[in-house]
Simulated scan of single mutants.
Amino acid sequence: MDRILTTLSGSSQATLIDRDLAHIARAMHVSLRGDFGGPILPAVYWRKRLHTLLDTGHLSHAQFCKVDSLLLQLDKLESAPLPEWERYAPAVAAPLRPAQAGLPARSARSV
């Protein structure tokens, strides 16, 4: 009986690791690119998650290769230059300034 429970829990753990790896593969790139405010989750977060999986010691060869591949992708994403629209984006949104007195307001037609 103990042998069957160990096998099932090992199988369940492998399934959870597979699901976690699939999630990281889908979310990591999008999260690192983020939006105009910067990354949603930094590279340190993703690196920690991948190293936590490595530390479990229960990875199959295929899972180990996937973690290695994701770590390489993470290194590449960190070293890649930011896209043009992110390089010049302000770190925080600039507040709107009120129109200056004495200057005519520009309409959409005059532009």
Rank of each mutant, 00 (worst) to 15 (best):
E84Y: 14
R109W: 15
L74P: 15
H61D: 13
A108V: 12
L59N: 14
R106I: 04
A93M: 13
S9R: 12
P83E: 06
R3W: 00
R106D: 00
A43D: 15
L74H: 09
A91G: 08
V67F: 08
L21C: 01
V67C: 08
G34S: 00
F64E: 13
W46V: 05
P39E: 11
L50E: 09
P95K: 01
L96C: 02
V44A: 15
S11H: 11
L74M: 06
T15Y: 12
D35A: 14
L32I: 13
H23W: 15
L8K: 08
L50D: 12
E84A: 07
S69M: 12
R33F: 08
R47T: 12
D68G: 11
G102W: 09
D2R: 14
P98A: 12
A94C: 04
I4K: 02
H23T: 08
S9A: 03
R33H: 10
A94Y: 01
I40E: 00
R97N: 09
R49S: 14
L103D: 01
A101K: 10
A93V: 14
A93S: 09
L8P: 11
P83I: 02
L74N: 09
P98E: 14
V30F: 01
V67Y: 03
P81A: 01
L103M: 13
L96A: 14
V111F: 00
I40F: 06
D2A: 15
A43P: 15
D35F: 01
D75L: 09
H51T: 13
V92L: 06
V30R: 02
I17N: 02
L96G: 02
G10I: 02
G38F: 09
R97L: 15
R26Y: 02
H61W: 04
V92E: 12
T7P: 06
L53V: 07
G57M: 07
D68V: 11
E86N: 00
K66Q: 12
L5V: 05
L32V: 04
A22Q: 08
A108W: 09
R19H: 11
A108S: 13
